[in-house]
C-alpha cells in the first residue's frame, strides 16, 4: 500500500525531463523532494497526479496502476496543491475552500461539510478570511486558502477509498517564516494520522528536521534517496546545489553562507 513510482522517465521534445525515477510514498510518511530549479520536481508531481503520462515506467497507487483509476476516484484518494493560479471571478474564500469538497456520496452532509470547512480553515489560519473575496488576499494568504482546499479534498467520509495522499508543489512559497513552519508541522501531523505526503520544498533545514524520507533530484535523475541522516552529506549537497554547504552530522542543520 503506497504510491509507487516505477522507473519513470519523461522525454519532451528530445529533452530528458526525468530519467528512470523510482520512489515510494508510504502512508504515514512525509517525503520531501529537494533539488535545484529545473531538476524535474514539478514534472514528477504532474506525473503522479495523472496530468501527463510518463514516456517510460508507470505509477501505481495502492496496487492499482494510475491509468486504470478514473479521475474521480483519483481525486478522492489524493489531493494536489500546485503553484498558484489566478482566479478570474470574485469567489469568496469560503467558496474556494468548498471547491475541495468533491464527495457527493452522502445526502445529509451539508452540516458536516460546513464543520469540515471550519476545521481546515482553522488548521490553515484562514478562519478570519472566510467571507473575504479571494482576489483581495495577499499571495501568502491565497496559498493558505489553497492549502485548506487541498486538505478538505481528502477529508471526506468515504472509507472505501483506502489510504489517502497529499502531493504539494512548494506549498511554502510566499509564506512568512512562521506560517512556513506551521504548515510543515501540520503536514508532519497529517503524516502521523496516516496520510502519505510528498512535499516539494526548498528549505533544507525544514526538510531534514521534519521529513521521514528525502529524495534529491538533479538534472532529472534521482541522485539520492533515503532517510535524512543518510542523504544529508556536505559533499553531496554542495555538488548538487553548486555552492559550498556544511552539514552538522548531529543536528543535520545545513549552513551555506
Amino acid at each position: 500500500m503506497s504510491i509507487e513510482i516505477n522507473s519513470v522517465s519523461l522525454r519532451i521534445n528530445d529533452m530528458d525531463i526525468l530519467k528512470d525515477i523510482s520512489l515510494k510514498v508510504k502512508p504515514g510518511e512525509l517525503m520531501a523532494v529537494l533539488g535545484p530549479n529545473g531538476s524535474g520536481k514539478s514534472s514528477l508531481i504532474r506525473i503522479i497526479s495523472g496530468d501527463i503520462l510518463p514516456t517510460k515506467g508507470d505509477v501505481v497507487i495502492d496496487d492499482k496502476p494510475l491509468v486504470e483509476i478514473d479521475v474521480q476516484e483519483q481525486a478522492l484518494k489524493r489531493s494536489v496543491m500546485s503553484q498558484s493560479q489566478q482566479i478570474l471571478y470574485d469567489y469568496t474564500v469560503r467558496e474556494i475552500i468548498e471547491m475541495g469538497w468533491i464527495y457527493e456520496g452522502m445526502r445529509e452532509s451539508e452540516i458536516n461539510v460546513k464543520n469540515k470547512i471550519s476545521e481546515v480553515a482553522e488548521e490553515c489560519y484562514v478562519t478570519h478570511l472566510l467571507d473575504r473575496s479571494f482576489n483581495t488576499l495577499s499571495g501568502g494568504e491565497q496559498r493558505r486558502v489553497h492549502f485548506a482546499r487541498t486538505l478538505l479534498q481528502i477529508n471526506h467520509d468515504y472509507e472505501k477509498v483506502g489510504h489517502r495522499y497529499i502531493l504539494l508543489d512548494e506549498p511554502t512559497a510566499n509564506l512568512d517564516l512562521s506560517f512556513e513552519l506551521k504548515l510543515v508541522k501540520l503536514l508532519k501531523n497529517k503524516a502521523k494520522q496516516g496520510f502519505g505526503i510528498l512535499l516539494i520544498i526548498h528549505d533544507l533545514n525544514l526538510a531534514s528536521k521534519f521529513s521521514d524520507k528525502i529524495a534529491i533530484l538533479y538534472n532529472g535523475a534521482l541522485s539520492s534517496y533515503g532517510i535524512p541522516k543518510d542523504v544529508f552529506k556536505s559533499k553531496l549537497l554542495s555538488n548538487i546545489f553548486g555552492i559550498p554547504m556544511d552539514v552538522n552530522p548531529e543536528t543535520l542543520r545545513v549552513s551555506y553562507y
Binding site: 496530468d51 478522492l76 500546485s82 493560479q85 469567489y91 471547491m99 479534498q153
Partner: peptide, 14 residues
C-alpha cells in the same frame, strides 16, 4: 465553478 481554478486543477478534483 471548479474549472475556475484552472483546467489541470479541475481535473485533479475529479
Amino acid at each position: 465553478d471548479l474549472l475556475q481554478l484552472g483546467e489541470i486543477e479541475a481535473q485533479r478534483l475529479g
